[in-house]
Computed example of a mutant assay.
Amino acid sequence: MARFHKLRVAAVDRLTDDSVALTLAVPPNLREAYRYVPGQHLAVRRTAEGEEIRRTYSICSPAPDGRAPDTLRVGVRLVEGGAFSTYALKEINIGDELEVMTPAGRFTLPPAPGLYAAVVGGSGITPVLSIVSTLLEREPRARFCLIRSDRTSASTMFLEEVADLKDRFPERFQLVTVLSREEQQAGLPSGRLDRERLTALLPALLPVERVDGWFLCGPYGLVDGADRALRTLGVDRSRVHQEIFHVDAAPAPAGSRGPAPAHTTVTARLDGRGGTWPAQEGESLLDTVLRNRPDAPYACKGGVCGTCRAFLVSGEVRMNRNYALEAEETEAGYVLACQSHAVTERVEVDFDR
């Protein structure tokens, strides 16, 4: 069960003019609770002007081998008008305490032999840095190709950490850098990595058909373009994993349509306990549950992070947006509670599965 605990800020490292890395100290009694798989994220919450704010940030440090972590490191990039990112860059100091949820997320890769690749943009490097560093350190039979896109070299997060991986694992780590707003002295020409460019580029870089897992992370446009390129190249969807950091004005995927019932009851199982409550007009399943169980897990409420994933036991729902669950999960019956609205009079979900 996901829970919040207070963790002390042990270090604040400036990465670029608009990003920082926060290192959080994990006390001995909480280390098992914060054991994580490379690629997972943390939800952080604070209250400002009487309003609770939650944001998710990916863990960027390699996962310890065989032990629980004593520190966690996350990357935070400033978002214009961002309530938490502004606070992180301008106010957080060493010694401050943050309320941090235990790790979550399924954009993960436990170390295993094979060839893997990632296409990332901007702060999308954060979870992939944990994935690739853990993989190369623990599995000598693994190789990784990282294709990263940034605006300029000055805006590139974790530049030194990625360069260090290249120096340590020159035979097993391939790095390709593309800058969209700055010309490079060597390497690929500047410009965006869209579907057409990636469709031509990927086969020239590596044997696409032999890649065991693709990891796409960053803004919606980049991830969508990379996913379409891989489909064009015949890559099976089971080998493609996605995590979107910024959706902006991208259209919500079309879901099942149906008239909302006049009266709806929502039954939910959470942390071993169940309950049934009437839903108010227009609210999501998550909002119904939160009114009665404030401990229900969520972070973004935007259909992006996947923290509120639940199994649909019975009934039907309309899911407005889904940028977190993969096709196999929705086909198995999972929904995002923050985006799901009842289509039938009775709906039952299970957060514990």
Rank of each mutant, 00 (worst) to 15 (best):
K6N: 13
D17E: 15
D17M: 07
T23I: 09
P27M: 12
N29W: 08
R31D: 06
E32N: 12
Y34V: 03
H41I: 04
T47D: 09
A48L: 13
E51I: 13
T56V: 11
T56L: 02
P62A: 09
A63E: 01
A68D: 10
D70T: 12
L72H: 02
R73K: 14
G75K: 01
L78D: 03
E80V: 12
G82V: 06
G82M: 09
F84I: 06
T86D: 02
L89V: 13
N93V: 15
M101G: 11
T102E: 08
A104W: 08
F107G: 00
L109T: 04
P111G: 11
A118H: 02
V120R: 00
T126V: 13
T126Q: 12
P127F: 07
L135S: 03
L136H: 02
R138M: 12
R138C: 06
A142I: 12
R148T: 07
D150G: 11
R151I: 11
S153M: 14
S155Y: 02
T156G: 02
E161Y: 09
D164R: 14
D167E: 15
F169N: 01
F169T: 04
F173W: 05
L175H: 14
V178C: 06
S180I: 10
E183S: 11
Q184V: 10
Q184D: 09
Q185V: 08
L188D: 01
L198C: 06
L202G: 00
A204Q: 15
P207Q: 09
G213P: 05
G213V: 07
W214H: 03
Y220N: 03
G221Q: 11
D224S: 13
R228F: 02
T232S: 07
L233P: 01
S238I: 11
Q242N: 09
I244T: 06
H246I: 14
S256Q: 14
R257P: 00
V266W: 01
R269F: 10
D271Y: 08
R273Y: 13
G282S: 11
E283S: 06
L286Y: 03
T288Q: 02
L290P: 08
R291L: 10
P294V: 10
P297E: 04
C300T: 04
K301Q: 13
G306R: 00
T307Q: 14
L312V: 07
L312Y: 01
S314W: 07
S314G: 12
S314K: 14
M319L: 10
M319H: 03
Y323A: 01
Y323T: 00
L325G: 01
T330P: 00
E331K: 15
A332E: 15
G333V: 04
A337H: 05
C338F: 03
A342T: 07
T344Q: 08
V347E: 00
V349F: 07
F351N: 01
D352V: 11
D352N: 11
D352H: 12
